[in-house]
Design a protein around this nucleic acid. Structure first.
Length: 417
RNA sequence: GCGGGUAUAGCUCAGUAGGCAGAGCGUCAGAUUGUGGCUCUGAAUGUCACGGGUUCGAGCCCCGUUACUCGCCCCA
């Protein structure tokens, strides 16, 4: 009986895994360059952590969590809450007033899979904890842009907005609700539901009728006080070199409850309906909610699968697996048994090499060497073994070179590295 | 949770009117003793997703199920 992978999961076969690792390494390098340090947290957390931070009413918490042990634990659906939990639990605020952290990790959400959406998926992200200053907002967006741009992506936009403090947003939400209530009958079914649960989400609606109603709806910007507006203006001015990519969008809202002030989203039109490559914003109230003193913070998270889709859509080259330096063919049973000892010595010298394990013909072994893109091949038979010599064949042009002694082969190949 | 599409070899896919299960790629082997790529020859791999029904006969028609996929919702 054949068993299939769970819905919404995927395997990365060696070629794909190699590219994933390349991406991760690239991303780590950029984080490191910005002086962000890696943090790792458990795969599962106490369920309460997500209920408190993301919000009980959100879809993620109310119906998409992988919860077990009678609701005690949950596979993490996102990383901001775990990072802040770890920050508080490890008293990291005592190490330094500003902590700049990053992660690359798998997340779990029980959603219906579709293009760019998986039940187990991989995110990378950063959290800058401790500063309310606008320069932190700017660094976060520069950082996110540096990663996408550095990988070679061109076709994306940065949607940017401020959703104000909790107080400002509260007043706005009441006004919005009041306005929309007059149109309750004309709203889409989804928006009728959102009107009760999360009115801000209506701003994100794609429904044509909703959009028409929204044309005359209250605008969040008008409900923000001067300091919030000033913060946003300063941010735009620091980010002016990105201005060709930035689209200020007063209707950009985020799904999680903990966001305040600056929010942003990097979107592309090349990967289907799930077009957000990266999303983030400020969450100045979260650390306090999770037991620290009031601590401002900002962060983002990006989906690696979506990034891979975008790279593919834009035909960005990703390096291929490294070829092997040497393939040793053995001619006959007795040489074959000696070869393993030989390649073991070569490998100890850092030479990437391989040989045949199936007892195939020399011709087949040559084909194998070709498939592995070996730079050099040696065929060892009784004669070569007895005389400790080898004919080193360069696969690119077929030329051969007679070498005496294993030591000389090692020297020769090490010079090639 | 709701809606659309699809399901045939490892991969990409054909399969005519309901009448023998196919191609390309890949894999394996051979083409003068122990040398790759190009070419040629040959071979292996199938529960035609699964379960029912109609029929002399079903990959094809009908019903159901499952999986995958795309969209809504939600979000990275």
């Amino acid at each position: 009986m054949q068993i299939q992978k769970p819905k919404g999961t995927y395997d990365l076969t060696p070629k794909e895994a190699f590219q994933r690792t390349y991406l991760e390494n690239f991303i780590r390098k950029v984080f490191d360059n910005y002086n962000y340090r890696e943090i790792r947290t458990p795969t599962f957390e106490n369920t309460k952590l997500f209920k408190r931070s993301i919000g009980e009413e959100t879809d993620i918490v109310s119906k998409e969590m992988y919860t077990f042990n009678e609701d005690e634990f949950t596979l993490k659906p996102e990383m901001t809450a775990p990072v802040i939990r770890a920050y508080v639990e490890n008293r990291m605020f005592n190490d330094a007033p500003l902590q700049k952290l990053y992660y690359i990790s798998n997340m779990y959400r029980r959603e219906r899979p579709q293009a760019g959406r998986y039940r187990e998926f991989s995110q990378f992200g950063a959290e800058s904890i401790g500063s309310a200053d606008v320069t932190s907002d700017a660094e976060m967006i520069f950082l996110a842009d540096a990663i996408l741009k550095g990988l070679g992506l061109v076709n994306y936009k940065i949607r940017l907005n401020t959703i104000g403090t909790l107080a400002e947003r509260g007043i706005f939400i009441s006004a919005l609700k009041e306005y929309l209530t007059d149109f309750t009958e004309e709203l889409s079914n989804d928006s009728k539901r959102r009107l009760e649960k999360n009115p801000l989400r209506i701003l994100d609606s794609k429904d044509a009728a909703d959009l028409r109603i929204l044309e005359n709806a209250p605008v969040l910007t008008h409900y923000l006080n001067d300091s919030t507006k000033m913060h946003f203006e300063k941010l735009l001015s620091i980010l002016k070199e990105l201005s060709n990519k930035i689209q200020v969008d007063p209707r950009l809202v985020r799904g999680f409850d903990y966001y305040t002030s600056t929010t942003f989203e990097f979107v592309t039109d090349t990967i289907g309906a799930q077009n957000a490559l990266l999303g983030g914003g400020r969450y100045d109230m979260l650390a306090e909610q999770l037991g620290a003193k009031q601590t401002p913070a900002i962060g983002f998270a990006a989906g690696i699968e979506r990034l891979e889709m975008a790279l593919k859509a834009e035909s960005v080259d990703i390096p291929k697996e490294k070829e092997i330096m040497l393939y040793i063919c053995s001619a006959g049973e007795s040489p074959r048994e000696k070869v393993l000892g030989i390649i073991n010595k070569l490998r100890a010298e850092g030479i990437k090499c391989d040989t045949d394990f199936l007892g195939r013909s020399v011709k087949s072994q040559m084909k194998e060497a070709d498939r592995m893109k070996a730079k050099y091949v040696i065929v060892l038979g009784d004669e070569e073994i007895n005389n400790d010599t080898a004919e080193l064949k360069k696969m690119s042009d077929g030329s051969t070179l007679k070498i005496e002694g294993l030591e000389k082969i090692i020297n020769y190949l090490n010079n090639e590295n």
